[in-house]
């Protein structure tokens, strides 16, 4: 079984600075493998070991996603090899465009049975890319996946749905996005980090991929720093809990919320 793990190399927006005019200064952000994507790496590795398969990491984005540190961070998490599409034309790309490039890269890799992804990315956090990518490929895409095991014909997949845990018989190829707590990912050890340096990396040129052109143009009319971030905290010292509590309750009563 040939498994692609789609993962994102991105900063936590908590560490970014938003200017007063609502534009974002990304300079201070420290990109990393997106918080929940190691779950997808782990699911992929376990499945590949059970089926004698291969795990290919895949990430797409601006040129800055391809650094020695970024390569090592991904390759030390149980991948057999890595494929990147790193082009500044993808800076700030929306989920449809990222999904189109991912789908084109999956086609270029060829013979892929399964694309595994994380729940939602640390920066955008919409859980949209894998589902759009599935549609770009013409494959079924399922989110909320909590378990994947090999089955007679394809895969047995468990999902967390509003009604309960659904068990599905799934034929490949398919795109699956894992829940954040599907499995506990292993922590990369020194051996994994050293081995990472020797694993193959392939950089696909964006121009060489068959990516459909975006149909919609977005004209930015304005940006803003969201309101609500400017609450001014009145702090009470809890070292005297009873006094802090009565002050707080008093304040809430006069504010009319109790």
């Amino acid at each position: 079984m040939k498994i692609v793990v789609a993962y994102k190399w991105a900063p936590n927006p908590q560490d970014l600075e938003v200017r007063a005019d609502g534009t974002v200064d990304e300079a201070r952000g420290k990109p990393a493998v997106s918080e929940y994507d190691p779950v997808a790496f782990e699911l992929a590795r376990r499945l590949a070991d059970e089926t004698g398969g291969e795990v290919v990491g895949l990430t797409v984005g601006a040129a800055a996603i391809d650094t020695p540190l970024a390569r090592k961070a991904a390759l030390s998490r149980g991948l057999d090899r890595l494929v990147l599409v790193a082009d500044d034309a993808l800076a700030g790309a929306d989920s449809t465009r990222l999904a189109a490039v991912l789908a084109a890269a999956v086609r270029a890799i060829g013979g892929v049975d399964l694309v595994l992804a994380g729940d939602s990315s640390v920066d955008v956090a919409e859980g949209q890319v894998p589902l759009t990518a599935a549609a770009q490929l013409g494959w079924l895409g399922l989110g909320r996946v909590t378990a994947v095991t090999p089955a007679a014909e394809g895969l047995s997949v468990e999902r967390d749905t509003p009604a309960g845990v659904a068990v599905l018989a799934v034929r490949t190829p398919v795109v699956l996005a894992a829940t954040a707590d599907a499995v506990v990912p292993r922590v990369a050890g020194m051996k994994d980090i050293l081995a990472a340096a020797k694993k193959p990396v392939e950089v696909l040129a964006l121009a060489a991929l068959d990516v459909p052109a975006p149909a919609v143009t977005l004209a930015t009319l304005g940006t803003a720093k969201p309101s609500g971030g400017d609450r001014r905290a009145v702090l009470f010292d809890g070292s005297d809990p009873a006094s802090a509590a009565s002050q707080l309750v008093g304040a809430l009563r006069s504010a009319g919320v109790l």
Partner: peptide
């Protein structure tokens, strides 16, 4: 970006 900023687009 996870809600740190707002954008208006046409």
């Amino acid at each position: 970006m996870g809600g740190i900023a707002e954008r208006t687009v046409a």
